[in-house]
Design a binder for these strands. Sequence first.
DNA 1: TCCATAAAGTGAGTATACTCATTGATTGTC
DNA 2: GACAATCAATGAGTATACTCACTTTATGGA
Lengths: 167, 167
Amino acid sequence: MRYDDLYAKPGHLIRRCQQIAVSIFTDECRDLDLTPIQYAVLLALKLHPDIDQATLAALAALDRSTLGDVVRRLQRRRLIDRRPGEHDRRSKVLRATPAALRLLDRAEATVRRAQERILDPLAPAERRTFVRLLSKLVDINNALSRAPMTVRAPSDKVRRPRRKGAR
Amino acid sequence: MRYDDLYAKPGHLIRRCQQIAVSIFTDECRDLDLTPIQYAVLLALKLHPDIDQATLAALAALDRSTLGDVVRRLQRRRLIDRRPGEHDRRSKVLRATPAALRLLDRAEATVRRAQERILDPLAPAERRTFVRLLSKLVDINNALSRAPMTVRAPSDKVRRPRRKGAR
DNA sequence: TCCATAAAGTGAGTATACTCATTGATTGTC
DNA sequence: GACAATCAATGAGTATACTCACTTTATGGA
């Protein structure tokens, strides 16, 4: 395969696809004032009440720092209830508030419509193929790589000195 | 199709895919100290020297604000040369420095390896299918929506005719 | 019990990635 | 040539999205 052109590179196509997906989601959910991440976090909390932030981060595929920010914003909007863990005093146990559950109910049809709009350019058979390949890609890469989901320690502990401007 | 589960939703899968792609790219390019975006911007500038920021933003599929930040960081590292436009004094004309061009040469094999690693979980035939569907999804959605990518040929096109009732 | 290790949350730092508003320059039209 | 619409860049504001370092707490083995 050729990756001469920027537009033929899988990485670029994936980024644009994500851009478009977020744009469509945001457009559909404008009235709900929910971002894709906030929706994912609240949905995960609805399905798994009373888990700590590290567990939720793994469920939603976010690192702990990012989730910390998301949780803070949702807590400020009274969509998340947050209390110290009883068994483990390091942890904070989270729960979606009744308002959040109502919001999720209201969001259901909207979110489904957004998901359908994302795949709209593809024919029905293509949609199934696309989602299947996407799932395969994500699952296997997730198992192999050190994506945030797996929290695997890098094999090479030797770290280069960070240059200025480095990420 | 069912989107009951978070993990079955296209939006979530696309986000995870992007996460993984960035992670692989960053891993491969760590010696080069280049992010995917920085690479895309520099490559676009190599192929289209002396364009202004708005044109570059369209080429790289970024909004102008985001590109402004990226350009500032690249300019600080002396990878971009930035001068006021001669014909249009509102604009700033950009060019990849010789150091940037050398960096792009060094990056070539590494970036290709990263792109291949992203698709590695798929069989060869699946890779072609995936990239084809991804391209279709991105192209059609881009044409329909008002995604940041407004394709316009910047190289030879002098000026777009201004449509009166457009937008 | 002591202690090395690890895990949970957090803060700092950096880099996307958008919206909206503003300022200054340009252009088509009258 | 004046003017309205538009456009280029930029800043403020918000939300991801990571790494690294640090503190506090937990845990397992000597």
